[in-house]
């Protein structure tokens, strides 16, 4: 059973994707770091995993600048979040 007060993985992913959505679907890495409330290392781990799962993608702006963008699957996650969260809460996962 999850310890109360701490965000679980599902909630952290939601916070990351919601932060991107609130910024119009694209966000700078530094803004995401601030909005997600995670350490740099943890945020990198989450971002890498979300990229692999196709929930977000990287958009190159120039040689050194890039943004993270929500993909269709990312929007799909946000749309289904309420159900996913309720499922997790109901079964104590």
């Amino acid at each position: 059973m999850p310890a109360s007060g701490r965000r679980n993985k599902l909630e952290i992913i939601y916070d990351i994707l919601k932060a991107m959505h609130d910024k119009g679907g694209r966000i700078k890495p530094t803004h995401l770091l601030y909005k997600s409330n995670l350490s740099h290392q943890r945020m990198k781990e989450y971002v890498d995993e979300l990229k692999i799962k196709g929930l977000i993608a990287e958009e190159q702006q120039s040689e050194e600048k890039y943004l993270y963008a929500l993909t269709t699957q990312g929007y799909d996650f946000l749309s289904n979040y309420q159900k996913l969260h309720e499922f997790t809460e109901t079964f104590g996962l």
Binding site: G25, R26, A57, T71, T72, Y75, L78, S79, Y81
Partner: peptide
């Protein structure tokens, strides 16, 4: 579910990038 407005431009960019 709450409706999340999809940014079509972003999606296109993302798919091009992918």
């Amino acid at each position: 579910e709450k409706g999340f407005k999809t940014n079509v431009l972003t999606l296109e960019n993302a798919s091009i990038r992918k």
